[in-house]
Amino acid sequence: MDKMVIKESRYISKKAKILRSVRMTSNEMLFEITLEGGESLDHEPGQFVMASIYGVGEVPVSICSSPTARNSFDLCVRAVGKVTHALHKLEPGDMIGIRGPYGKGFPIRILEGNDLLIVAGGLGVAPLRSLINYVLDNRRDFGKVHILLGCKSPKDMLFINELDSWNERMDVHYECTVDRAEPDWAGNVGVITTLIPGVDLEPERTFAVVVGPPVMYKFVIKELLGKNIPERQILVSFERHMKCGMGKCGRCQIQSVYCCQDGPVFNYEQIKHMSEAF
C-alpha cells in the first residue's frame, strides 16, 4: 500500500484555539473558540461542528453562539463520553480541531417577520442560544418572541446570566420551569409542557422551535398542535452521533434522511411519519 499527502480532504480539521472555558454546571462547560488566523466560522444558527481532540477523537457539537459574534464561537459541552470528558480537561490556549459547520440550521429567512415560540429543554438550550441571540441582535426583523425553558432542577440551568437578561428584556416573553426544585426556588415547577397553554399566540404567524431530549418532543409537539400551529411551522433539532458530518458514514441516519445533511433542523411535517426520529 502506498501513502501520499493529499491537498484536498473532507476530514482535515481547521486548527482552533480555546480562548475561554467556563464551568456552567457539574456536567457542562462552555468553551469560547477561535479558528487559527481569526477566520470566521461562518455558520447559521442551529448548525454543528465536529470538534476534535487529536489522539482522542471527534464529536459533533452544536454551535451555541450567534453568527453575529464574528471572531469566535461557543460550544457547550456535556461530559458524557471519552472525547467530551477529555474536552473538559482542556484549558484556555489549548488547541483543538474543528470541521464544519455542517447541516441545515434554523431557517432564519423563513422565520423573519413571524412570531417565534422557542421551547428549550435541558441541553436543548445550547443550539437554541445561537438562534435566540441572533434574533435578539436583529430583534426588529421578528414578530413576538416567546422563550420557554425547562430543565431538571435549578442547579442544572445553563447560561444563567443570559437567562436573566432575556427575562429582563421588554421585547421578549420569557418563562422557565424546573422538574424538581429545592425549597428556595421561587419559580415554576413542572414539566415544560405546563408553560405552553399560558402563551398567547397567533398560530398562523407563529413558528415554534423546539429542542430538547428525545422524550420531550412527543409531548411538546402535541401541545403545539393543540394550539393550532401548522405542522410546517414546528421546527425541531435532533441529536445523533454524527461521525463524518457529510451524509456518508450512516451513523445519524433517520430512516431516509441524514441528520447531518438534511438536518439537524427539521420541520415536523418532514419527519412526523418517521418513528425512528423520536
Partner: peptide, 17 residues
C-alpha cells in the same frame, strides 16, 4: 489524517492507495 502534536501541531491529510 496524520498529525504530530509537537512542532506546533502538524496535520496532514493522507491517501493510502
Amino acid at each position: 489524517i496524520e498529525y504530530n502534536l509537537q512542532s506546533g501541531l502538524e496535520v496532514n491529510a493522507v491517501l493510502e492507495h
